[in-house]
Structures are given as C-alpha cells and as structure tokens.
Design a protein around this nucleic acid. Structure first.
Lengths: 335, 335
DNA sequence: CTGAAAGCGCTTACAG
DNA sequence: CTGAAAGCGCTTACAG
C-alpha cells in the first residue's frame, strides 16, 4: 500500500485545468453558466487526478448533507429491502442519498440510534421500525414513519399499508374457502396490532370464534413455530392460520410438518409481507403484499414535499394491500 | 415542524458552560487533562443544548472520517449479517464506525460503487462481495477482502473461510453415510469455485463420479431449484446433493418436494453458510458454518493493524469451517 | 467567466 | 487550563 501523495483537492483540479477554483465548483454543481470547452477541461483534470469532492467539506460549506437517514429493525428480516429501493428511486432525482442504520447492530454502542444521523445532519429521517423511548426526535428535522407503528411521533408524516384491511381480506379469503376454525398467530408492534384488528373484524362479521396466540413481541420463524404449536394444542380443530408475517408463517409450516399435518390439505396458512421467502418453491406461501416498494416511493415524496415546505401539516398515506394467492390455502375438508 | 433555531455549535456549548471553545473540544475528545468540575459543566451544557458535534466539521478538521466502508452484494442474502456484527465489534474499541453499501441498490445511480466511500474518505474498505472492474481502488486506502473472491485486488488483505475444506468435509460426511451418487449444484464467484474444488477433491479421493450443475452466476433459491431439477433429470440415481449455499439448498428441497422425493429419506441435502434460514424448523438443514462472525472480527483486526502500519505486507487469514449436522442427511437406502 | 474573501464547525498546536 | 490563530476543502456571494 504505497503511501500516496495526498488526495487531490479542488485547487489541484483548478490548476491542472488552468481555471479558477470557483469554476471547478460550478462544474461540480452542474451550473449551466460554464462554457463547453472549460467544462471539458475541468472534467478531464478531475479524471486525471482521480479527484473526488470531499463529502465532509461539501456538507460543511454547503450547509447540507444531502442524505436521508433510514432506521430499520434488523437486517435479518428482509421486508425493508423493497422499501429501501423505492425510497432510493424516489430520492435520487433530488440528489439525495440514503444512509441506513440497523437498530440491532447498533444496540450495543449507542443508546440513541439516531445520534449518528443527527451528527451527520441528515435532511430527514425515515423510520422503518418501531419508535422507542430512546429516540430523541429533534423538532428541526422531518420525520417520516414507514409502516404501522404503535408509538406516535408528533408532527411526523406517516406512510403505511392498510394492515387492518389486508388481514381482513386474508380472513375473508379463508372463509370463502369454507374455513370456520381460523386462528391467528401474532407478534408485537404497530403492524401486528392492525393485523390483529383486521382478523377480529372479519371473524366478528362472520360470527366466528376468535383464537389469537401471541408468545412474544418478536415475529421470527421460531416464534411462529411456538405460537402454532400452542394453537394446535389448544384448538386441534383449527383448519386455517393467518400468521403475523411470512417468517412466522414459515414457522407455522414447520410446526404443521412436525404435527403430521399437510399444508394445505389439513391446514391452510396465510403469511404477510410478500417477502422473498414467501415466493420460494418450497413454501409457495399465500400472503398479503403490503406493497413496500410503493411505500418507499410515497415516503420519498413525503420527504421531498416536507423539505420544500417545512410548514405543511403532517400527511398520512395509506396503501391498499393485495392478497397474493399461491399454494398454502385449500378449501376446508368437510365443509 | 417548528422552524427551529439553528443547531447548537461548539461556541454555544462553550458559552453556556462558561469555558473556552478549546476546552469543549478537549472534553469531546475525552482528554484526561480536563478537571472534573469543568468536564461536568461542559457535559451539562451539551445535554441542555442537545448538542451533537457535526460529523462533517469533525472529519474535515480532524482529517479523518473514522469510518470503514463495507460493500455487500445484496441485502436479500443475509449471510453478511454476522460478518457485519463481528466487524463492528472489532472496530468499536478503536472508535471506528461502519458504513455499508449494497451493490444491487446502488447499481442504478453510480457506476463505481466505491465512489461514495471515497468521497467520505473512509479509513478502509471491506469487500464482502466480488470485486468488479467498475471498482477503481485507490492505492491510498487499505482494502480487506472478506470471503473467497475470484478477482484479486493488489495489496489487499484477505480474510476468508476455507471453503474448499468445508465442501470436502461435507462430501466426506455424505460418503460416510454410504452415499456414492452425490451431485453438486453451484453458482459463480470465488466462494463457489472453492466449494466446487472441495467437492472434486473429496469425490476424486473416493473414486466417485462427479456431477456438477451450474445454470447461473447467481446463488438464489430459484437457481438452486433449477439446478436440482436438471440434476435429477440427468442423474435420477442421485441420493445426495451439496448445494453452493443455503438458499440454493432450499431450492433443492423445493425441487425434491415437487419430484416426490422425501428429504432425507430419498435425498440427502447439505447447504453452506449456516444462515438463519438453515436453522428454521421447516428446513433443519445440515450445512457448513463458515464462521462469519469470526471472519468479521479478523477483518476488523486487519483493518486496525493496517491502519497502524500501512507498510506491512498483505496478510491472509483462513478460517476452518464447521460441519453443522441437522436433519437433512441420512444413510443411503440400499448402501 | 475570474479572483479575492468570508465562512461552514470543528481540530490542532502554541504561547501564556 | 485559556485565547487567538491557522487550517481542513469546499460553497457562496460579489466586484470586476
């Protein structure tokens, strides 16, 4: 690793191109008031010197970081991937980039997961996780909540999918297949609460008995497995299950397999999220698509409009979820 | 969103605490030459003003970003999660933070995925993905390759698991169970090449016929499914499969299910990575643990030692992988 | 377009 | 410990 010469600065570029430092800055910022030949000379010098503007200097001098901070729960649950993609697509045109921070990874080092972002002076904050008491929100920076959350953040915009409606539709689908013994396995958090409510709406409307099992705030595969074991023990007559998300649905399939139940012949299962997992050949899981890519695009719009008008009142966008039928639901046996 | 007063600076803190600006800086940098009462006064002022040092100013003035850039392939394949955790643990003591960039997400916006990091002036680069020709490595910044890669980066340190040995052990395990008709489904990239080599080593040593199927550079569930279909069509006598990674193994299980083969009774399957997926109740996949957390710790050590001595020669760390026996392997039927 | 100037919010010596 | 000073690498007016 040769100890290189110091990195090129804007001065070096100006000198190499035979122009003023100001002109280089204009080229960098894509100003139209630069003649073609000079612009070419500057670009050539940039390339030759392998010059890259210092982000620190740009941010400090320009007074703007041009980045939006996104907080997610945990890299392991990949529902956020499409959200990020949508966000990034929606923000790119405005020259904004994304920085993502994962709560579980940073749990050890800093109490407030927002500290890093606030030091970076991010332009806005997108929360794709449950807000916690450890998060101290600055009133000076726009906050957009992505997804349904149990905790409110004053003044924040909200973009979420209608989880309540999605769960209701899932149950209505099961009912239309003749199921009456329908259980729901759930975790914690805002989305779970909405999905539970939707389950209740549909069961009540059909005059069916509810059976909801929760053993943890978590919504992992293992928790789904545990909930399902408990449900099948308590109500062996169950013929269909709505899981709080796709990971839990996978756990439910594991429990069914262990109990010798065939899916969907003996037990119908519906997941939630339309995650990459649900679309595997092994699972072919019927699920509810919460349209996370669209959710990301809407969140991006909210960031931009809020930046353009910091005074505007808080918005709320609610997307309609879609039932994705695959192979884990079947008509009830002796309906 | 009340238009706040401007953010507090070090001047405001100094004034509020009744000390000099330099003293505040000393407190921020945890200097021992600050008396307890003054330190307390400064900390109180920081808290009261909700002051957070500007990262841009700190980086620019200090000449160091204190961050290490990590490039991963794709958020969807979660093998990198434990790598990140190890890296972060190993780097935290030195006050270094991590910034991660995902290639697939950034593929659209910039040609060189390293551009952002170089603008940030990261202290070092950790590559948890295959290096591409689009990446222009600066000789001024340490590069650590995590995992086996097909492309070399001159002067870079390498920390990887011994994929060749891991694959060999997996095959030896199958052979010890009496299998002789053993296929391998593989993707592309450095790790895949090593795993293929290990498969060959073991098959050759046992005098068995090789059957390797590759249909894509990718190593997704769907590709694993396709490879397996092809393998079973070409060699229906196959009783065991080593998959290039856990996702592909899941695809293999999907293909087996579709073909009416029971795992492990009719078909034994071994994955690779010991990913969260492999440890689900539904899969209980026998796999090879490449010890990604330890890999992250070693990569962190390499970053630190390289930073301490930029002139030291390139290192190579090779970790020994572990076979994790779960439930997808069984003795061959009529051995 | 140029050129000189001020400033962004810090760090880093350095004389007292 | 303080206080004044220079500097990090840019952006932003502004007079020419």
């Amino acid at each position: 690793m040769a100890e290189g010469r110091r990195r090129a600065t804007i001065y070096d570029v100006a000198q190499a191109a035979g122009v003023s430092k100001s002109l280089v800055s204009l080229v960098l910022r894509d100003s139209p008031s630069v003649s073609a030949p000079r612009r070419a000379a500057v670009l050539a010098a940039i390339k030759e010197l392998d010059y890259r503007p210092s982000q620190a200097a740009t941010a400090l001098a320009g007074g703007t970081s041009q980045t939006v901070g996104v907080v997610i729960d945990d890299y392991t649950n990949t529902w956020f991937v499409e959200l990020l993609r949508g966000l990034q697509e929606g923000l790119a045109s405005a020259g904004l980039r994304i920085a993502v921070s994962d709560r579980s990874l940073n749990a050890h080092i800093e109490s407030d997961p927002l500290d890093g972002f606030l030091s970076t002076r991010v332009e806005a904050l997108v929360l794709a996780t449950e807000p916690t008491s450890a998060m101290r929100f600055s009133s000076q920076i726009p906050v957009i909540i992505a997804g349904n959350r149990a905790t409110e953040v004053p003044g924040a915009d909200i973009t979420s999918s209608d989880d309540r409606l999605g769960a209701r539709r899932a149950i209505e689908h099961l009912i239309s297949l003749g199921h009456t013994q329908i259980g729901h396995i759930a975790g914690g958090g805002g989305a779970s609460m909405q999905r539970i409510a939707g389950y209740r709406d549909a069961m009540k409307a059909a005059g069916l008995d509810e059976r909801i099992v929760t053993v943890s705030e978590l919504t992992t595969e293992d928790i789904g497995y545990q909930c399902t074991r408990q449900l099948l023990k308590r109500a062996p007559e169950t013929t269909a299950i709505l899981a709080g998300n796709d990971s839990m649905a996978m756990g439910a399939m594991g429990a069914a397999q262990e109990a010798g139940l065939l899916v969907p012949k003996d037990l119908s299962i519906i997941g939630y999220d339309n995650s990459p997992l649900s679309d595997t050949h092994l699972l072919q899981l019927t699920t509810v698509d919460s349209r996370n890519h669209a959710l990301g695009l809407h969140a991006a719009e909210q960031v931009l409009s809020r930046l353009a008008d910091p005074e505007r009142t808080a918005q709320r966008v609610l997307l309609e979820p879609l039932l994705i039928e695959r192979s884990t639901c079947a008509p009830v046996r002796n309906a």
